[in-house]
Design a protein around this nucleic acid. Structure first.
Lengths: 351, 351
DNA sequence: TGTTAATTCGTGTACGTTAACGTATATATG
DNA sequence: CATATATACGTTAACGTACACGAATTAACA
């Protein structure tokens, strides 16, 4: 049926073009040293034959390693969220290692822009073939992206997206919708006149736009469905438990809150507080972290929204691999599924 | 830091063993023609050096193709469920095609055991290197597995598992827990004295034990949480809409049901009926099929439970690939996440 | 002891590509 | 016009493994 398999190689191309394989190789890698005329001829033949280089032979013959740079936040003691993307990255690394690809990892501190810049500056771009980056700090990232563009180094975003750049693709959440979904889940439980509390717990510096977007989605749901509930909001700008507890206490003293939406993974702090004060409220938050999981199982957290952090890392690396090695491009925007985690399905959840 | 990369090849082994690479090659493939003494010596060196064959070179040098047989149900007009695993399988196939792996697919009819046997008999095992199978029909599958074992052909299960065999791994749902989770979701909505209906819609032949297991999980939740709701159950043994509608009508005439749990993907039939009779009840069912999705978005279905059919196919093939090509084995039991799909997150769901 | 047959092993070519090296031919420089 | 210098191309040895072929050694038997 298929008949002519992929038996066309440089040899066949060379034969047809009346040149040597060396010349063919030169135009394949568009190196210098071949006249325009023969180059065009060869390119035409390549086109016609739909030549697909044999990557096995290619990687075998080229002793060079391919290097991917990975730039992500370090796993902090505050949250082990970035553990998961890292695991995905490392799994992917293991799978493509046999094909001569190695990773160089650069970890920065989520709470310090300078550490990001520092890591970026450390990278010697001359021996990097592709970049996976979590561009949390937008401006600083953009400066870096310009450098990448100049050198034509392909890059993929994970976790957060920056529009208007030549990124190969983005793997991460669609924040608005995750807030919207959270509101929907909440609606199943609350009554008409219940008061709802939105809690932002984060230093001013980090992913503030992230949180805002989720909040927008959350509020939109209530608006679109004509729900009249009172929605309170509190910004807690210090992340230590004492501060969080004190802040919550203030709110609860003055309001009768029956459901809480925490816009990030620090929901465990709220759960802890509710637990200690023996208050039972519906609680929705984000991310499958160790602490959160504990409170989920124990019943203090009703739902965790999670967006496959591991898969973000895994797929990000694989997208680079497919592009660099196989010249294949996939979808540009890859929004992760918005997973709903409960005590009943959490054991089967693969981040 | 690492220093000694994987620069050990047959040549180095040969040098250390004072033999030629040909001899090393013979023991690597344990072919005949090498004395026990030298064989042992070479094996020892291989062990010591932790020799990892270069698969690039290996596959380049060996012109042979590797063939995987895939045995799954065909996409029926009744349900397009099996579309998804197939897509996953084909995606995986695309990714590993460059490495000389090709797939032979055998589709059988879910409603006819004979078609399964027929497909099985058609397979010429002598040129199959590995098998991916959805072993819906247990006995018939087991006969086949014995043949595979005899020829030492590795196999992976998807969608349903058969215990007590040498399968490399299983990728599929954990049914009990998905029923359990469904009950939990239902609990958010129902009141203490609400009546609940469990609906099984299936021919007697197919996945009956599947449905039963889910039902068990569902009921267990109510028992474990001391919920006193009345749980009705109906078995609908014909899958056409007319029959389903008639069956439901009978139940509803005599009972005031406020929530329904449908144990498989045919939940859309129930949704359609509710829709037509303008009855609004909480409805939970399974699988991200086209029809279900429609009713989910439109509001008739509250939750769909879904277990990544596409990923089952994808990962199944990849597991075979990792084993056959890289001699790597992963987890034996891989239960898919139990995903909760609502109208709010369905657009982001990747089967 | 010579002959044959088995057993054990080495050699060489191939797989499709890369890239260093070498060799012509054309162009520029004095 | 001789010499230097690009420019365009061919040749060839790798990369690590598979496997056919044949050579050497050993065992078997007359």
């Amino acid at each position: 049926m298929e008949g002519n398999k992929e038996l066309v190689g440089v040899k066949e191309i060379a034969r047809r073009a009346n040149v040597s394989i060396g010349t063919v190789d030169r135009v394949l890698h568009n190196r210098t040293g071949v006249s325009k005329k023969t180059k065009d001829k060869i390119l035409a033949i390549i086109e016609e034959l739909a030549y697909q280089p044999n990557i096995l032979a290619r990687r075998l013959a080229s002793k060079k390693q391919i290097v991917f740079a990975v730039i992500i936040p370090s796993v902090s003691d505050e949250t082990d969220y970035w553990q998961e993307p890292l695991m995905g990255i490392e799994q992917a690394a293991g799978e493509i290692a046999p094909y001569g690809i190695i990773l160089k990892k650069y970890f920065y501190d989520l709470n310090h822009k300078t550490s990001f810049v520092q890591q970026i500056d450390q990278i010697d771009l001359s021996d990097i073939h592709a970049v996976l980056i979590a561009p949390i700090f937008i401006e600083e990232s953009e400066n870096f992206l310009i450098k990448l563009d100049k050198r034509k180094i392909p890059y993929v975003f994970i976790n957060s997206d920056i529009q208007g750049h030549n990124s190969l693709s983005y793997f991460g959440p669609e924040l608005y919708q995750s807030g919207y979904l959270s509101a929907h889940l909440m609606k199943y439980v609350i009554k008409e006149d219940d008061t709802i509390l939105i809690v932002n717990i984060s230093h001013e510096i980090d992913d503030h736009h992230h949180l805002l977007r989720k909040e927008q989605g959350f509020r939109s749901y209530f608006k679109e469905n004509d729900l009249k509930n009172t929605i309170l909001k509190i910004d807690i700008v210090q992340t230590d438990y004492q501060f969080v507890a004190a802040s919550l206490q203030t709110v609860f003293k003055e309001n009768n809150v029956s459901a809480i939406f925490v816009t990030n993974s620090r929901v465990s702090a709220v759960a802890k507080y509710l637990n200690q004060t023996h208050a039972r409220k519906m609680l929705i938050g984000f991310d499958y972290t160790k602490e959160n999981l504990q409170f989920l199982k124990q019943g203090s957290i009703d739902f965790l929204i999670c967006q496959k952090p591991r898969e973000q890392g895994y797929k990000g690396i694989m997208a680079l691999y497919q592009f660099v090695v196989h010249a294949k491009t996939g979808e540009k925007n890859n929004f992760m599924p918005i997973d709903i985690i409960t005590a009943q399905n959490c054991d089967f959840y693969i981040n």
